[in-house]
Design a protein around this nucleic acid. Structure first.
Lengths: 135, 135
DNA sequence: TATAAACCTTGAAGCCACTTCAAGGTCAAA
DNA sequence: TTTGACCTTGAAGTGGCTTCAAGGTTTATA
């Protein structure tokens, strides 16, 4: 199959497939006589793993590590399990940070509403609150 | 004052200050006879506003918009208030997405634990779960 | 006085995971 | 025969910086 059909089976763009090849995540495929890339079912499986892992926010480096194990005929399951747990912890931490940020934004908005909105340079202004967040 | 002192007063790096200048957020400063950049208190105020807004995750484009109002002697407070509310909503939405992602990661991890960890290509493997997340 | 240490300058490249653009070549249907 | 959908490559753009390379300047110390 050609690149577009491969890409559609994994729900990614064909430019992304070319990018994965250029970054070494996908091997250079066979070519048809006219120079078009020619893929088979094993390429679909590999790309689906890449797409599934990317949709879980794994980096291409992480994915390369998983694929390298498989390519050496070592089962990557244990590594993948560890990565899932670690990524979940990272996301959890990121959520906490964003919750704090959201609270700061809402607090600033609420406080800002109590100030006049025609102060340009003075301290009597929501902009000044933003400036003085230093630390 | 020179660039490092300016940067320290706003808790940013001096390379970031140069970057802000190159992107038009900060105007080109006066120069000392030896060519070093020379800043004053108004530069500190401007940079603090930039740093405060960046710490709230505003883009440099957003910040440029705020500064453009101020530079035209129009009070940016109303715009800033609107941006605060909108940014808070964006963060809230992002938190929801990350919570869904975290749940998917934890669910996959839990389910993956029930599979053997020595399957390389077959369907009896957490990797296969990752591959089949398509959609 | 030599020299090291701390500061400053510029321009270019690197980061991440792509997308977009430019400038073509290939192939099937109407 | 021409339109349109597909394919190719290489380069540049995205955001907000940091890092690197290769210097010049100034202050403190030995």
């Amino acid at each position: 199959m050609r690149i577009k059909e491969l890409a559609q089976q994994a729900y990614v763009s064909d430019t992304a497939v070319r990018y994965y090849e250029s970054s070494g995540i996908l091997p250079p495929p066979r070519r048809l006589p006219n120079g078009y890339r020619d893929y088979d079912q094993s390429d679909v499986e590999r790309l689906k793993l890449v797409a599934g892992a990317r949709s879980l926010d794994f980096s291409l480096d992480d994915i390369a590590e998983i694929l390298a194990l498989r390519d050496r005929r070592e089962a990557p399951c244990r590594t993948v399990l560890d990565m899932l747990a670690q990524k979940a912890d990272e996301i959890q931490q990121r959520i906490i940070e964003l919750q704090q940020l959201e609270k700061q934004l809402r607090d600033l908005h609420e406080l800002g509403l109590t100030f006049p909105t025609d102060d340009i340079d003075g301290k009597n202004c929501v902009c000044h609150l933003v400036s003085e967040r230093a630390g």
